[in-house]
Computed example of a mutant assay.
Amino acid sequence: MRILLTITSLGVGGAERLLTALADQYAADDHEVMLVRFHGEAELRPSDPRVRLENLNMRRSPPGVLAALGRFRRLVRAFQPDVVNSHLVHANLLTRLLRMVTPMPRLVSSAHNTNEEGRLRMVAYRLTDRLADISTNVSDEAVEAFEAQWALRPGRMIAIHNGIDTAAFAFDPAARVRVRAELGLDGYTPLLLAVGRLWEQKDYPNLLRAFAHLDPGAIPPQLAIVGEGPLRGELEALAQSLGMVDRVRFLGVRHDVPALMSACDVFVLPSAWEGFGLVVAEAMACERPVVATDCGGVREVVGEDGFLVPPRDNTALAAAMERVLRLSPEEREQLGSASRERVMARFSLDVMADRYLAVYQTAYKEPEGVK
């Protein structure tokens, strides 16, 4: 099968990690794969050299968009894909528009969140819905959110949970020692870790205020935050105002997230909203205890194998982090093993790839009673 995957850009994010892993998986299974991004440098890229990687170099102006769509049209006509699967809002909408003038045997549009940050985007989804054969999202709650916002009609979107490479995301004792030495930490200092872009969705002010509530104890806990974004200066200023400059580390973009997860004692997701929470599954695969806000599909990921608190409630978040830090080594090990088993069974890359492939290969049927 010829599979053409499109995405807005290939920065360091959950959807981007998912798509590059998916491209590698399909190439390994002997499918012909092209991965097209609309703009930007490829901070992430597939590791399999058989994946054809293309950049449309789109400029953010009407002439720039038209020129990029022209380049995209030529790629589609030359590659002749059996299916096109677009990911993220801009790629979804632009690929749908291109289908009006470019034959595509099957088009699958994939969203990755409950919230596309603006009513106009949801209206655009609704107006172009018929140009896709079917849409997907990363959790049942995210699908329900799209339907509730009238982004599409009921039955036109299905849930496909994100999947991760459970071989890459696994606890590594050697990596734990190496990373903690790099951070200047001994084996006893509690380390909490958060991973994600520094912007409004991830609600890092909630995390910093919760961390400030923790009992410092005999060995004060440390917090490491991985990611970049527009709020970095504001967050650094908040950490300073809370008197935590010496205990909070902003590590920027890192390409050794599995090693960092092995090094931490607690993984924290403080988000205000999420579609799925891919990093939560990654941390669970690394056998880390997880504390996360109960938003989007995070509950579907964590199940009974982690700790959930309401979004935007730093008091509840602090209490959950304290609870995990007080677990005995035996309780941590038991929780970590159960977390990995859950991810292996439900959220592995193989499971996700098979579900997408089934959607690619199955003719869509209009649900009964939907007009």
Rank of each mutant, 00 (worst) to 15 (best):
L93Y: 04
N113I: 10
L192K: 02
T95M: 06
H87S: 07
V226E: 01
D165N: 14
D165V: 04
R60A: 14
L238D: 04
P216A: 01
L94W: 07
V301A: 08
G11S: 07
E41V: 14
R346Q: 13
D246G: 06
R59Q: 15
R180N: 08
A194V: 08
L19S: 05
H39P: 10
A358K: 12
R126N: 11
A338T: 11
M244F: 07
E322A: 15
V76C: 02
W150R: 15
D172M: 08
V179T: 03
D82H: 12
P270T: 01
V123L: 14
L198R: 05
G303M: 10
N115G: 09
A218W: 06
R52H: 15
P62R: 02
A259F: 05
C264I: 00
T189N: 04
A142K: 06
L75D: 10
I158H: 10
P310D: 07
S139G: 03
S262R: 00
R312E: 13
V290W: 05
M321F: 01
V108M: 03
R99I: 01
G369R: 04
H39V: 13
V12S: 03
V248I: 13
D350N: 15
V290H: 03
D294L: 11
A168P: 01
P329Y: 09
T136M: 06
E333R: 15
M284V: 02
S139L: 05
D350G: 14
P81E: 04
D313F: 09
I164C: 07
L235Y: 04
A239F: 03
R121L: 12
R106H: 05
P289L: 08
P221A: 02
D133W: 13
A320F: 05
M104Y: 03
R323D: 11
R60C: 06
E54D: 12
R59W: 11
F79H: 12
S47T: 14
T95G: 04
L238M: 06
W150K: 15
V65R: 02
L10S: 11
L185T: 04
E304K: 07
A78H: 15
L66Q: 10
F250Y: 11
G303E: 08
V370T: 12
I164V: 11
V291L: 01
A194S: 14
L185C: 05
G187C: 08
T362V: 02
Y356W: 07
S337F: 15
